[in-house]
Design a protein around this nucleic acid. Structure first.
Length: 397
DNA sequence: AGTCCACAGGAAGGGCAGGCGA
DNA sequence: TCGCCTGCCCTTCCTGTGGACT
């Protein structure tokens, strides 16, 4: 092993100046206290408490912007509830509806729920009705209360409509032994107004709104976490304040604040610094955005990358859907891809827009038609990096 | 006011893969 | 093996649209 490499590894093994418990700042960490959410915790606990006596509690609909602690609070209460339930008669099932391959179709969602209850359901092949039957049977197997948490429920609704919700909120009518309570979590308040009124009234028997954290609250959250995660004195003055202020600008997102702190500390560690300084937070902010976009682009299917490449090649001009499609067809010939129809390419442009990689705005050019004006939403440094990846790794010319 | 353009975007359905039960 | 089912990606067909032009 080269001497320099050896010294790098040795330094990581022998000294770890910054982190005391790095796991405590990862997304999977479940904190033992949730500052500034005591009221919400108590409210939810009060609503769900009847389940401990074997009675069905009201369904709850929770709304709040990302990073306002919705998932953390409900997971915390659910965990405590399961711990308090004697003979395990309370079962909590948590589903993140944003997860692909788990909850992006009605079949997959119900199959996933059935699997959570120990049933085996094939990935495809069965009629959806049969999967419902398997799930209903598993639920009703014994006397118990099931609390079903559907996180980002609006995402699922957009994909598959509200039939599944209709079936789930009415499930208790057909159960003999068990009862189900549903907790729906959403970032989007208008979601409730777009669902079937019967489903809406059942789903939102209780409603809770999580307000964004302000900068002072975010600072408290970060300071609490710093005590667990970092060694004493490694966080310089102003670092916590800066992370909190940046996250407060983004609708009071605690997750963003913690991410900034974590990445800043990692950068400081990599730079051999004994302390995390404000400059590391600036670098962390740039790195988080950059990594997210690069990772997203690399995960795109080749057709989508070809569309993006055609937009990159046209960058700097007035670019419309028709122009993108013309260049895209040439690129397909160059790299041996079968060109898709304009209709499909139009959808791919929309998807890239949704991912925040490009901006696509529908405009009308009068008698010259209605189209989308497309531009890149990437800074020059990132654009150069993307060009490098696209040409060397994916062979676009 | 009517026409026209270049699409946007919804709906329907084809074709394929993967899987099940008989 | 066959018929049936779902998911996914895609095409085809269609209607709708905003504003420049006539």
């Amino acid at each position: 092993m080269q001497a320099s490499l050896k010294s790098i590894f040795e330094r990581y093994v022998t000294v770890n100046n910054i982190f005391k418990n790095k796991k405590a700042i990862t997304t999977s960490y479940k904190p033992e206290s949730l500052p500034h959410r005591e009221k919400e915790i108590n409210t939810i606990a009060t609503i769900l408490a009847p389940s401990l006596r074997g009675e069905r509690s009201s369904n709850i609909f929770i709304y709040g912007k990302p990073g306002t602690g919705k998932t953390a609070v409900i997971s915390y209460v659910a965990r405590k509830l399961e711990e308090s339930s004697k003979n395990g008669n309370v079962k909590v099932i948590y589903v993140n509806c944003k997860m692909r391959k788990i909850a992006d179709t009605e079949y997959r969602l119900i199959a996933h729920l059935a699997r959570e209850l120990g049933e085996e359901v094939p990935v495809t092949g069965l009629p959806t009705e049969q999967v419902y039957n398997i799930f209903f049977k598993a639920v009703d197997e014994k006397e118990r209360i099931i609390i079903l948490i559907l996180d980002e429920i609006d995402v699922l609704f957009e994909k598959i409509g509200d039939d599944f919700l209709y079936n789930l909120v009415r499930i208790n009518e057909n159960l003999k032994n068990a009862q189900i309570s549903i907790v729906g979590i959403s970032n989007n308040l208008s979601f409730l107004s777009s669902i079937d009124p019967r489903v809406k009234s059942s789903l939102s028997e209780e409603e809770l709104i999580f307000k964004p954290y302000n900068a002072a609250e975010l600072q408290n959250i970060l300071r609490d976490r710093c005590k667990i995660v970092f060694n004493d004195g490694v966080i310089s003055d102003g670092v916590v304040e800066k992370c909190a202020a940046l996250a407060a600008q983004e609708h009071g997102d605690a997750r963003r604040a913690l991410d900034l702190l974590r990445v800043a500390a990692e950068i400081a560690e990599r730079m051999n610094s004994d302390k995390v300084e404000e400059i590391h937070v600036d670098m962390a902010e740039a790195k988080i955005d950059r990594d997210r976009i690069l990772e997203t682009i690399e995960m795109q299917p080749r057709q989508s990358q070809a569309v993006l490449w055609s937009i990159i090649k046209l960058n700097g001009n007035e670019v419309y859907t028709g122009d993108v499609y013309d260049v895209y067809k040439k690129i397909c010939v160059d790299v041996g891809l079968k060109p898709l129809t304009q209709r499909r390419v139009s959808d791919l442009i929309s998807e890239l827009d949704l991912l925040g990689i490009i901006n696509a705005k529908v405009i009308s050019k009068g008698r010259y038609g209605r189209t989308r004006k497309v531009s890149l939403s990437l800074d020059n440094g990132l654009l150069e990096k993307i060009k490098e990846i696209m040409t060397t790794k994916y062979y676009f010319q």
